[in-house]
Simulated assay, not measured.
Amino acid sequence: MRDNIVQDLRQLLDAENAAIINGDFHVLDSLAANKLALFQRLHDADIPQTDLRRIARDIQKNQSLLGAAIKGVAAARARILALRDVRHGLQVYDHTGQFADLPVARPELLKKA
């Protein structure tokens, strides 16, 4: 029985790992309930330390990947916001050292007949 729990949990953690790597974050939500049930079964079972260490390594690997994905999304969001701000104008320092807004002139389109 304990082998089934360990095997099932490691398969779930592998699926979670693949979902994170592939960016299929919607899959993580569907794995969560099953993961919780397996952890509850794991808590009640007598599992060897070697298996528990392997499971802990898999969990840590997935946490690291998920943390990196979150940082990547935050960096991309910040970059998009910065690019959007540039379209509206630039913030520069004036001759007194204060921030000044420098509007961006939009080029006029010339229609030639």
Rank of each mutant, 00 (worst) to 15 (best):
R2I: 15
L12K: 03
D94L: 08
R84Y: 14
L102F: 10
D8Y: 01
I21P: 00
L66P: 03
L66G: 00
D101G: 09
F39T: 05
M1A: 10
R77K: 14
A33D: 03
A32E: 07
Q49R: 15
F25A: 05
A56Q: 09
A68N: 12
A32D: 07
G97S: 06
A56H: 09
A105I: 09
D3C: 08
L52W: 05
R106F: 09
H43G: 06
L13G: 06
L83H: 08
L9E: 00
K112I: 15
G97W: 06
Q11M: 06
G23D: 01
N34D: 13
D8N: 01
L9R: 00
R54I: 13
E16R: 01
R57L: 13
A105N: 12
V27H: 11
R54L: 15
A74C: 07
S30E: 14
D94G: 08
L36T: 09
L9P: 02
K35S: 00
D8A: 04
A78P: 04
D58Y: 04
H43P: 01
H95Y: 14
L83N: 12
H95G: 14
K111P: 11
A76F: 07
K71D: 11
G89Y: 02
F25E: 04
P48H: 12
L38N: 02
A105C: 07
D29C: 08
Q7F: 11
R77M: 13
K61D: 07
L38C: 01
R77W: 11
L12V: 02
L66R: 01
D101F: 09
D29N: 10
N22W: 03
G89R: 04
D24F: 06
L38E: 01
I59T: 05
L36E: 10
A45E: 00
D46I: 12
I70K: 10
H88M: 13
L13I: 00
K112P: 10
R84T: 13
R41Y: 05
Y93M: 15
P107G: 11
I21G: 02
I20Q: 02
L90M: 11
P48S: 12
A19I: 00
L110K: 15
L66I: 04
A32S: 04
D51A: 04
A37E: 03
I70L: 09
L13R: 04
K71V: 08
